[in-house]
Write a protein that binds this DNA or RNA. Structure first.
Length: 471
DNA sequence: GGAACTCGCCAC
DNA sequence: AAACGTGGCGAGTTCC
């Protein structure tokens, strides 16, 4: 038996394709001259870094080995230089077993001059993948990113030519270079509407874990803050946390982000404590590896040096921290979210029995999947379908009501619009109504509140300058 | 000279 | 017992 609502699934993709085709036709305005200026700027930065590299010992060894074939952009040459010629031990390997030359691997080698290689890569990435593709793809000053619903195994969407779904946002420099050239139409503003915690909420509709539902229903509760508290043993900061809340302190807030992105989400995706501990130590808290002696850090809440804090809590090395994260993980799955955990086990067993599983939105995944894929696909797909269904409604309403505002794109759990300022209030109210009222009516299995976050650009302002929308 | 591959890196 | 899910895309490289 196919899923009972399979025809609904087909209807959603059909309507979604048409709505996305209209968004594609709409497109987004690009400042082509600014792109060219940014590209020129990046080229000089790259030349500077290349010059510094060629003067260094590493650069000299590189030229000695490859002569006129020397290419600082070749990872093959770099790999051969550091792992063969220098004979360094590869701490990290690629999928095919070669010594890795990614940023993490290069940093771990402790060769100062490799920072130039990393810088060249970062600037080149911005120049070619983003700004270069905008100039190449633009027609009369507009890019028309393409959206597909038939390419992904999860029933999410994809975007290409150019891809609007991977424009830098976390790295401030890259964000500024790339988003500062993208605009709405003249006299209009860019509006972005994000579905808050879409995947966590969609997952809850499958597993129905009461503790998770409590978190999602109670606006005062904070799953990531609670996790930061146990992960980093923050009892010493009870006074701050209880009086002003963890979010009020910038350093404690960064630890909340670390818990969210370095533990909670990876655990949901199927990662485990050894990776989480290592990533947290390396990327989020900048804890030294190996044995931590007092003085390697300073007292919390200096996030960059929190080893003294952990030493005081009896966690004196990465190994000890890993053991601690192991206990936190066990508590996470066996106590806090034990219903979620049981659902994962049952879901995978059921798939292994039948060879397929259904999404709540009317799709079936059939094929050979590993455990993590089994758990992740239905969640990713259904979360995206919330957005897609809402996008179809907004597209329809915008045409019925003859808006001067229009949809221009979508990034899995957010929609992107080009909005006429006089319509802003109405557009936002419409989307809020669709998301919070009509969507749960359409999908009666939604058992958690839906919420959206609206960000607006300035009139004639770029995508790099977005502020929270205030009603 | 183009197809197919690996690797690295951007997003959610 | 095993160990992070989904995409697109550019550069370099290898193969035909």
């Amino acid at each position: 038996m196919p899923p009972q609502n399979m025809l609904d699934g087909y209807g959603l993709l059909h309507a979604g394709t048409l709505a996305l085709a209209r968004a594609e036709r709409n497109g987004m305005r690009i400042d082509v001259e600014l792109c060219e200026r940014h590209i020129g700027d990046l080229r000089s930065k790259i030349i500077e870094e290349q010059a510094k590299l060629s003067e260094s010992q590493l650069g000299k060894d590189w030229t000695k080995k490859y002569g006129s074939d020397t290419n600082y952009g070749s990872d093959t040459q770099l790999s051969s230089l550091i792992y063969d010629a220098y004979g360094m031990k590869a701490g990290k390997r690629t999928a095919k077993g070669q010594g890795s030359t990614d940023e993490e691997a290069l940093r771990s080698l402790g060769i100062e001059e490799l920072s130039h290689v990393i810088a060249i890569r970062k600037y080149s990435k911005i120049e070619t993948t983003y700004l270069g593709s905008y100039v190449r793809e633009q027609v009369n000053g507009f890019i028309h990113p393409s959206f597909s619903l038939h390419t992904t195994v999860t029933y999410r969407s994809s975007s290409s030519d150019p891809n609007l779904q991977n424009v830098p946002v976390r790295d401030e420099t890259a964000m500024e270079y790339c988003r500062s050239v993208i605009f709405a139409r003249k006299k209009h503003r860019i509006v972005e509407v994000d579905w808050k915690g879409a995947e966590v909420s969609a997952a809850a509709c499958y597993h129905k874990d009461p503790e998770m539902i409590r978190y999602l229903k109670d606006p005062k509760s904070d799953m990531h803050a609670d996790q930061a508290y146990v992960l980093f043993k923050l009892q010493a900061f009870d006074q701050i946390i209880n009086s002003k809340g963890l979010k009020s302190d910038p350093d404690l807030y960064r630890l909340r982000q670390a818990a969210k992105n370095g533990f909670v989400f990876p655990e949901f995706y199927g990662d485990y404590y050894v990776n989480c501990a290592s990533n947290l130590a390396n990327n989020w808290c900048k804890l030294p590896r190996g044995s931590w002696s007092p003085g390697q850090g300073v007292p919390m809440p200096e996030v960059g040096h929190m080893s003294d804090h952990l030493i005081r809590q009896g966690i004196t090395s990465l190994d000890a921290f890993t053991e601690h994260v192991k206990k936190v993980e066990s508590d996470f799955w066996n106590k806090r979210f034990r219903v979620y955990n049981q659902w994962r086990k049952n879901w995978v067993a059921d798939y292994q029995d039948k060879g397929w599983f259904n999404l709540l939105t009317g799709f079936r995944c059939q094929g050979v999947f590993d455990k993590n894929q089994c758990i992740n696909y239905p969640v990713q797909g259904a979360a995206f379908h919330w957005l897609l269904w809402s996008l179809v409604q907004v597209d329809r309403i915008s045409r019925q009501e003859k808006w001067d505002s229009r949809l221009v794109g979508e990034v899995h759990d957010s929609m992107l619009l080009d909005v006429a300022p006089e319509e802003l209030e109405h557009v936002v109210a419409t989307i809020r109504r669709v998301a919070k009222e009509e969507l749960p009516k359409h999908f009666p299995w939604i058992i958690v509140p839906i919420d959206v976050e609206v960000k607006v650009g300035e009139i004639d302002g770029p995508w790099s300058r977005m502020s929270p929308y205030k009603d």
